[in-house]
Design a binder for these strands. Structure first.
Lengths: 172, 172
DNA sequence: CGATAAATGAAATAGTATAACATGACAAGC
DNA sequence: GCTTGTCATGTTATACTATTTCATTTATCG
C-alpha cells in the first residue's frame, strides 16, 4: 500500500468515529488542551508539531508518517522523514497522538488531557479507528504480569474487525 | 536496529520465558501439535514452514522476518523475502506463531493447539517476550465494542515494560 | 551576554513488507 | 494419460516505514 493509496474510505461518518459529533469543537478542544499542557510543562509546541496534530485531528483517522510528511512538504514545513517522525515522537510521548502498531500509523488522541491507557478498534475494511478506554483490561493483565514479576509500563490494545458500517455493507 | 544486531540479550533464562522449563519437550510438543493439526486440516506442513517453526521454537524469543530469512538462506531453503513472509503468514494464520506488532517480529506460540487470544509481555531492555492469555481482556473489551457496534475478529494485546531480570539489573 | 539544551535541516541508509509474474508439484475428474 | 485447478515456490523488483548522523539554528536560563 503506497502512502498515497492508503484506503480513503475511512471518511465521512466512519472517519468521525462510530457516532457523529461536532468536529470543530472536538478539534479546537484538543488543540487548546495541547497548548495548555505544553505551557504548563515547558514544552515547545512548535509550528511543525502543532501542524501535525492539526492534520491528525482534521483527518480523524489513522495516517502514516509519510502521509503526514507529504502534507508538511506541500506546506513548506519540512520534506525529510525525520521531520515527521520527530513531531510524531513528541506528540506520542506527550499523549496527544497514539500510534496504531497494527497499521504503523498515527491517530490523534480522542481523550485529550486525560492520563489514560487507550484501546483501539480498527476496521479491516475501511481502516477506521475508534479509541476507547482499557481500564479493565489493564487490571486483569496486571494480575498475570505481577504473577510473572513483569513490570508493565505501557500497554497496546488493538482490536481488528469490522465497524458497523462495513458490517452492513458486507451483508448488503 | 539491523536484523543481525537485534538485541541478543534475550537469551538463557530470559529467552525461556520468566521460568525455566524443559526446552526440548516444549519444542517437540509444539512440532507434533503442528503436524497433527496440519494433517487434520489438510494443510501442507512443507519443509520451509516446518523449518521456520523450528527456528522460532528453538530461539524461543522474537525474531524478525529477516533474521529468519538469513537462517533459511544459510540452509539453502530460500533467499528472498517472500519465502520467509509466506511461511510466517502460514504459521500465523494457523496459530503456530504470533506476530509481535510492537517489534515487527515473530514468536512461536507458547500454547500450541489451543484456540486462544494471546497477550504478550515485552521487555524493553532485553526484548524478551512472554505469552499469556487474554480471556478477561477480551470480555471487557467486547463490552465496549458491542456498545459501538464493532465486531471484533482479532485482538492484539501487548504490554511493554521490564522483565524480572532487567528490573534487578536496573536496581543493581 | 554566554553557556547549555532543544529543535531543525539535510543526506544517507537501514529495516520491514508486498506486488507481480513465472514455474513447479500434485490431486481430481474426464 | 491428459487436462485442469489449486496450492506452494522461485525470482525480481519495488514500496513502505524508520533511524542514524552530523551540521546548524533557535530557545532557555543563569
Amino acid at each position: 500500500m503506497t502512502s498515497t493509496n492508503r484506503k480513503k474510505s475511512a471518511n465521512a461518518d466512519a472517519a468521525k468515529g462510530f457516532a457523529r459529533h461536532d468536529h470543530d469543537d472536538c478539534m479546537s478542544a484538543a488543540m487548546s488542551a495541547a497548548e495548555v499542557y505544553c505551557a504548563e510543562h515547558s514544552l515547545q509546541f512548535t509550528p511543525v508539531r502543532r501542524r501535525v496534530l492539526e492534520i491528525l485531528l482534521q483527518e480523524h483517522s489513522a495516517l502514516g508518517a509519510y502521509d503526514i510528511l507529504e502534507k508538511l512538504r506541500e506546506e513548506g514545513l519540512g520534506s525529510q522523514p525525520p521531520v515527521a517522525y520527530r513531531a510524531l515522537d513528541f506528540l506520542v510521548s506527550n499523549g496527544f497522538v497514539h500510534k496504531i502498531e497494527r497499521m504503523n500509523a498515527f491517530v490523534a488522541c480522542a481523550h485529550p488531557g486525560r492520563d489514560h491507557a487507550p484501546a483501539f478498534m480498527i476496521c479491516r475494511s475501511c481502516d477506521m479507528v475508534a479509541e476507547t478506554q482499557t481500564a479493565p483490561t489493564k487490571e486483569s493483565f496486571n494480575a498475570a504480569a505481577q504473577a510473572a514479576g513483569f513490570l508493565i509500563e505501557r500497554t497496546v490494545v488493538e482490536a481488528e474487525g469490522l465497524c458497523p458500517k462495513c458490517q452492513k455493507e458486507d451483508t448488503a
